[in-house]
Design a binder for these strands. Sequence first.
DNA 1: CCTACCGATCGGTAGG
DNA 2: CCTACCGATCGGTAGG
Lengths: 211, 211
Amino acid sequence: MARGRSAGYDDQREAILAQAAALFAQQGYTGTSMNAVAAACGVSKPALYHYVRDKQALLVQICEAHVDRLQQLVAAVEAQALPPEAHLRELIVRFVKAYAAAQNEHRVLTEDEKFLSDAERERVREGERRVVSAFARALAAVRPDEDFAALHKPLTMLLFGMINWMFTWLKPDGPISHADMAPVVADLFFGGLQAVRVPTATAESVFPTTP
Amino acid sequence: MARGRSAGYDDQREAILAQAAALFAQQGYTGTSMNAVAAACGVSKPALYHYVRDKQALLVQICEAHVDRLQQLVAAVEAQALPPEAHLRELIVRFVKAYAAAQNEHRVLTEDEKFLSDAERERVREGERRVVSAFARALAAVRPDEDFAALHKPLTMLLFGMINWMFTWLKPDGPISHADMAPVVADLFFGGLQAVRVPTATAESVFPTTP
DNA sequence: CCTACCGATCGGTAGG
DNA sequence: CCTACCGATCGGTAGG
C-alpha cells in the first residue's frame, strides 16, 4: 500500500474547497475569514491549514478547477464534431448546465478573480480566453462571412453576458429552471444573429483602412 | 448667509463618494479600508468621518444614487412617448451610455449590494425592480401576444445580462466603444425576439392549468 | 520520523 | 481636523 496521505484526505480537501466556494460566493473573498471557513467545515483552524497552504490557495484552486472543467466541456463538445449551429447550441446548453451545477464556483470566478496574484490571475484568464475563443470559433463557423469577423468576439461576450447574468436572477426554486432558459438563450442568439449588422466604426477600427 | 456646512461641503462629499466607488469597484467593499478611502481622497480618517457616518453609509449612498439616476432615465424615456420598438431601443442606448458614464458605481451596485443591511438592500432592490419592470413593460408593448407574457421578465433579464456584462470585457481604450455596442445589442435582441418560443414547462408553471 | 490534528496565541490591522 | 488610541478580529503558526 502506498505511503502518504490518508484515504479521506482528498475527500476532506474537496469538501473544504466546496464550503469555501459557498462562503466566498455569499460574502466575497475578502469578506470571508479563515475562521468562518474552518467553522463551516467543522474543523479547527489548524486543521484547515493542514489541507490548504493559505487563504489565497483556496481561491486559486476554486478558480482553476472551475476553469479546467469548462475547458474539458469545450473539448467534449468539440469531440462530437457537430454541424456549426448544433455545435454552438450544444456549447450553450452544456455551459448553462455546468454553471447551474457549480453556481458558487462560478460566482467566485466572476467576482473574486481580481483578488488573485498577478501570476495566478493571468493563468486563470488564459483558461478563460481559451473558452471564449472556442465559443468565438463556433460562432465563426455559423457566420463565416468575412465582414462579420469583427463581431465574433463581441457577440460571444454578449452571449456569455446572458448566461453569466442568469445566475443573479434565476432562483433555483423559482418557476423557471436553468434548463428551461438554455433554449431561450440559444433561440434569441441565433435569431438575433440574422439581424445584426457590423457597425461602421467597429469595422474600421478592427480593419483599419490603409491610407 | 445660511449657517451650517461650508460651501464646498457637498462637493467634497461627492468627490469622496466617487473615490470610494472607484476603490470599491477595484477591491470590493470588504477589501477596502476606510484608511484607503481617506488616503485616496487626500483627507485624514477623522476628516472622512466628517462627511460620512460610517463605511456602510458610503455603500448605501453610492448604490441609491446610481439606482435613482437609472429611474430618472426611465422616466425621461417614458416622457418621450415613443412607439414600442423605438422606446425599448432608446432605453437600451441610454442605459449603455449611463453605465459607461458610471462604471464604478455600476460595478459596486452589481457586486457589493449584498453587503447592505437587509432594510437598505430591500430599498435598493425595490428601485432595481422598478427599472426592470419598466424594461419588461416596454418589451410587452413590442410583443403583446398573451402567450409571450411568461417571457417578458426572463428576456428582460437576458437583455440586462448582455448590457451589464459589457463592462467586464469592453475596455474604455479598446477598439470598440460602448456606443458602438448599444445598437448591436438592440439588433440582436429585436432580431432574436422573432425566433424565441415559449418553453412548454415555463408556460405551464407561470399559468398553471386549472385541474 | 511520519500524519493529523488540538488549545492557545502570535504580530498586525480592521472600523471607529 | 490632528495624534493617539480602543475592542475585536484578521490570517497564520507556535508548542505539545
